[in-house]
Design a protein around this nucleic acid. Sequence first.
RNA 1: GCGCUUGUAGCUCAGUGGAUAGAGCAUCUGGUUGCGGUCCAGAGGGUCGCAGGUUCGAUUCCUGCCAAGCGCACCA
Length: 559
Amino acid sequence: MKMILEQQIRSVLGEMQKAGTLPVFEVPEIRVERPKEEQFGEYSSNVALMFAKQAGKSPMELAETIRQQLLYLCHSESSEAESRNLEIPRQARDDNEKLFEKIEVVKPGYINFYLSQKALGAVVREVLAKKERYGESEIGNGIKVNNEFISANPTGPLHLGNGRGGFYADVLSRVLRKAGFEVTNEYYINDAGEQILKLGHSVLKDSEAVYSGEYIDELNKRLTTDDLKQKVKEVGEKAAGIVMEEMIKKTLQEKMQVSFDVFTSEKKDIEENGYINKALEILRAKENLVYENEGALWLKTTLYGDDKDRVLLKQDGAKTYLASDCGYILYKMERSFERIIEVWGADHHGYVARFRAAAQALGFTGKVDFILVQLVKLVKDGEEVRMSKRAGNVITIDKLIEKVGHDVARFFFLLYAPETQMNFDLGLAEERSQKNPVFYVQYAHARLSSILRKAEEEGLAKTSGDLNLLVHPKERELICELLFFPELMETIARDFTVHRLPQYAIRLADKLHSFYADCRVLNGENKELSLARLELIKAVKVVLAETLDVMGIAAPEKM
RNA sequence: GCGCUUGUAGCUCAGUGGAUAGAGCAUCUGGUUGCGGUCCAGAGGGUCGCAGGUUCGAUUCCUGCCAAGCGCACCA
C-alpha cells in the first residue's frame, strides 16, 4: 500500500515533468509515511515540501497539483498502476469503489490520504484469508543468511547480556524468515583457545584458577580424578564439553526457548578440518594482503579501513584469534551464505573492523551486519551492582527467568534497542513482572479469545458480517493497526529494529482495549453490527497472536 | 591520548529533516457491578546534554565541548 502510493506519486511527478508543467529534476526518494496523528489520515507524504524549491512552486501549490493528478489516477478506469500489486486496491476496485475516501492537502504542504471504507474492509478480509501468513513477504528472496549469536565461551553460565542478544537475534531470525530469507541460526563454540586452559586451571583449583562458582565446585568433584590431575588442557576440554551440554544448551532450550540450527565447534569443525590453514593459504596467495614483520605474519586489514594491521601468526607460530576467525569465515563461505549477521556484546566493538576486513580479504562479497548489544547494567536500590565472573556473583539469565518468567524476561529484553545501555533494577525485578506490559498484551489476547468463545456458544461464530458497518472511529483505528503489520515486518527485516515489535504489540493491545470499552461486540441491539465486529475481532486476534508468536511469547486463551 | 556507543518527562525507554516531541511505570482525577476491571477516559510533568554551523525549517545532519559506558594485545 505504502509502496503503491510512493510509485503513484513518482509517476505523477514524472508525467508532470514530461508534460512540462514541472521542471526536470532528480527525484531521489519519495516518502510516504504514517502520520503521527490519526486526524492526518492513514498515510501522509511530504514530497511537496521536499521538492517545492526545485519545482519553483510553493509547497501548497505543488501539493494541490499532485493531489489533483492522484485523484484523476484513482478514478480513471484505464489506470492499472495501483491495482497491480495488492489485494486491497484490487478488491476495492472490483467493487467499483475508490481506494481513498479523501486526499487532503494541509498547511505546510502535506498530502494526507484517508482510506475508504471498502479498503478498510478489505484489510480485515485479507487478514482472515491469510491467517498466520499475514505479514509474510518475499523481500528476502531466498537469500541465505547466517545469523550467529550468543556464541559465549563454554566456560560458565550465560549472563544477562547473552540473554538480551540471544532473544533479540532469535526474534530477528523469525522476522527474516517471514520476509523470505533462508536463515541459519548458529552458535560458535570457542573451545580451542586460551580460555579452555583457564577453565582447566579453575576446575583443578590451582594457582592459575580464574573462574569460580558452584558449577566450578561441581566440575572439580567430577573431573579431579587421579588420572586427570596434571592434565590441565584435558580437564579444560572435558569441562567445556560439560558446560556446553549440561548448562548452556539447557538454558537455551528450556529457559530461553531459542533454537539453533547449528553449533559450530572451533576445535572440531574449524581447526581439525584445516579451515584455518586453508584460509591462510588463500590470503597468502593474494597479492599484498599478508606480510611478515618481526617474525610474525600480518594481515593488511588497513586496506579495508582498520586502524592498524593485525597479526595472524605470532612470532612463535601460534595462531591468533583472528586467524581462527578467518577459518570460520571461510567455513561460512563454503556453506554458501550470502549474508552474515554477527550479534556481539558491545564490548567487542573494537574487533568489528578487523572482522570485516578479514571477510573482504577472503573474498566474501555479501553483506556483513553487526548488532552490538550493550551489556545490561544491574541496579539495586539505586546503586549499580558490580558483577564479576571471578567472584562468581554473576546474575545468570537462568536466575532471571526463574524469577520473572520466560515471557516477561523475553519481552523486557526485546523492548529496547540493542545499543541502549539498559538498567535492570534487581529490586524491581519481581515487581516489574506484575507491571510488565507483556501481561497487558496477553490479556488482550485472552479477552479476544473469551469473546470468541462466547460467540461460538451463541452460534454466531460461523456467520460472516458486513464489514461496511465498521465505521466507528475505534474500529477504524484498530483496522489501521492491522494494515500496518506487514509494513512493520518488512521494516524490521530491512533495518533489524526488532524492538519495534513489542512496541507494536502494546499499541495493538491498547487499541483493542479502547475499542472494547466503546464498542460492544456481543448482545448489542444491532445483530448485524455484532457479526461485523466479530469479524474484526477475529482479525485482530490473528495479528496479535502472530505478533506474539514472532516474538516467541505465548498467546494465552485464558489467563 | 585515540576510537565506538549513549545523553529525550521523576524513573525505564520510543521516535523524527518538517504539522502541538510520544509510551509504560510513578503521581493526581474521573468512569466502569464486566462481551474477563489484569480495563477505560483525562490531568500534571520536557530549554530533546551544552555551544556553534548547514537548511525555508534541526531534537534529528555536521563541528566543537561536557558527561557516562565500553574498547584501544603477537588475549580470546
